[in-house]
Simulated scan of single mutants.
Amino acid sequence: MKKSIIISISGILLISCDQISKSIKDTLKSAPVDSTAYVEREEEAPKSPFDPAVERQIDQAQRLVNTIMEKNHPTHVQHPKEGKNTNFLTNEQKLNKAEEALKKLPQYMGKEIFVYSTISFYDDGRIHLMLQHPKNPEYVDNYDYKDGNWSEPTPEQLSVKDDIKTRLVSLNKIPFSNIARAATIYKEKSSKIEGAEPITNIYISVWKNTLRWYPSSISGSRERYSIELNENGTLKKFENK
């Protein structure tokens, strides 16, 4: 078992974030414990039956997954500016406009929209999200928002092991105006940390039908702080790590 975990961790840098999560779950499939624990460690999760050495390896794997998750959703990359879309993250008016345009897509008119897995917002005016198919609940489509317009849907390839229902949340629970609130908090906190760069990407992960905001940390030249937001984008916790 320990050897299998180490092999899984060694290969973790060669695959995407979603593949990383699936790899860890598949590697530990035979263990008598809920495999989702290796992707998201819940605060109230039951005690693991593994011995301490194995638990340490699992925790190390989880930390590595979280690190790569944030690297694949870069928060400090300066994207090319697109004029009118500058400072999109804190512009509530433009965020609301994007949300209204999404709700007016012909395929979703009069229907409740469900976001799947993640939704990413960029300060240059872009948004990327996945939505449950409007007619077939077993399907998921990708959508991109750029230059004030939503793209046509492109299919997302899912595994039979993906539990779609637990990765869904109603768009009503994610008003885009909350992004402006969260971005303001990130901006305020990072401005007080020496050497911290501006946050240019915020994304929300959906896990067990609840929302988690990223980035979950802000690094400066001398210090690193963990930051946690409530589901509505207000500050929950901010502390030196």
Rank of each mutant, 00 (worst) to 15 (best):
R41P: 01
S10A: 15
H76E: 13
P153Y: 09
N91T: 01
A61E: 05
S190T: 12
F121A: 02
I185V: 11
K25T: 02
I127R: 03
S205M: 14
I193N: 10
S221M: 07
W213N: 05
A53V: 12
D18C: 03
G83C: 09
D26C: 10
D59G: 02
E138H: 10
K29W: 05
L171T: 06
D124K: 13
P52Y: 11
N201F: 06
S35P: 08
E70S: 13
N149W: 06
T118I: 08
I15T: 12
S10Q: 14
E239Q: 15
P52S: 15
T36H: 13
L229C: 04
E42I: 02
R222K: 10
L102I: 03
E228L: 09
Y38I: 13
R212W: 08
N91L: 01
R212N: 14
A183R: 02
I218A: 15
K104L: 08
K173P: 01
R212Y: 14
D144I: 06
V169A: 09
N209K: 13
N230L: 04
H76G: 04
I119W: 07
S226P: 00
P32V: 10
G110W: 10
E228G: 01
K192Y: 02
H73D: 09
A101P: 04
K236R: 07
I193R: 08
Q78E: 11
T234W: 00
L13I: 06
K22G: 09
H76I: 10
R224I: 14
